[in-house]
Computed example of a mutant assay.
Amino acid sequence: MTVTEENAPASHYDRIGGASSVKAAVELFYDKVLADPVSAAYFADVDMASQRRHLAMMLTVVLGGPNEYTGRGLAEAHQPLNIPVAHYVKVGEYLTVTLAELGVPADILADVQTVLGQVQGQVVSAGNRSGA
């Protein structure tokens, strides 16, 4: 049997409800991030409307949706910020909690957490990688 578009497994993106669900997750996620004074400080001079669009596009890709992301790479965008591991982990927790609150299934949460682990070195500054 060959896999056709009709019987292909749904992507995580499709399983959670597509673009509207990703947008809801991004909104709730940034509500959490911006309520935390430590995390919010990283966004003090950031155009949050643009930031929300970028994260929605990136999260869409992570979840197997259409790749329309055209922004900077993770390292280019984050290395100048000197983000320590503890801050990265906290923001990752905000994302995981947000997705769980929205009813995202455990297998998708696990895959998102795997990706967070894979990209940590691109986000955390080299001088801050050894611990919290």
Rank of each mutant, 00 (worst) to 15 (best):
E5Q: 11
S125P: 01
V33T: 12
L63A: 03
K90D: 10
L28S: 15
V26E: 00
L63D: 02
H12S: 12
G103K: 11
S125F: 07
E68P: 02
S50I: 09
E68Y: 15
A77I: 14
P105C: 10
Y94E: 08
A40G: 14
H87E: 11
G121Y: 12
Q120N: 11
F29W: 08
L99C: 08
I108A: 06
I16C: 05
S50V: 14
H78G: 03
V85L: 15
Y94I: 04
G127F: 05
A44Q: 10
V97N: 08
Q122L: 11
P9F: 01
Y42M: 05
D111N: 11
G65F: 05
T98V: 01
H78S: 03
G92Y: 02
L59N: 00
N82V: 09
S11W: 04
P66V: 03
A86G: 15
M48G: 00
D111H: 13
D107E: 14
G103C: 11
G18E: 04
A126N: 09
M57A: 10
A126L: 06
D107M: 02
I83W: 02
I108F: 02
V22L: 05
A106T: 07
R53M: 11
G65Q: 07
T114K: 13
Q122N: 14
Q120F: 03
A24P: 07
V124Q: 00
V119P: 00
A77P: 04
L95P: 02
T114V: 07
M48N: 05
N67T: 06
T96L: 10
G71D: 10
K90W: 09
G18D: 03
Q51A: 13
A100M: 13
E93H: 13
D31I: 09
G121S: 04
A41G: 11
R15T: 13
S20Q: 14
G117D: 07
V124N: 03
S39G: 13
S50F: 08
A40Y: 05
V26I: 10
A44W: 01
E101F: 04
G18A: 05
A100K: 14
A75D: 06
N128E: 15
Q118T: 15
S39T: 02
A132N: 12
A100Q: 08
Y69N: 01
V115M: 12
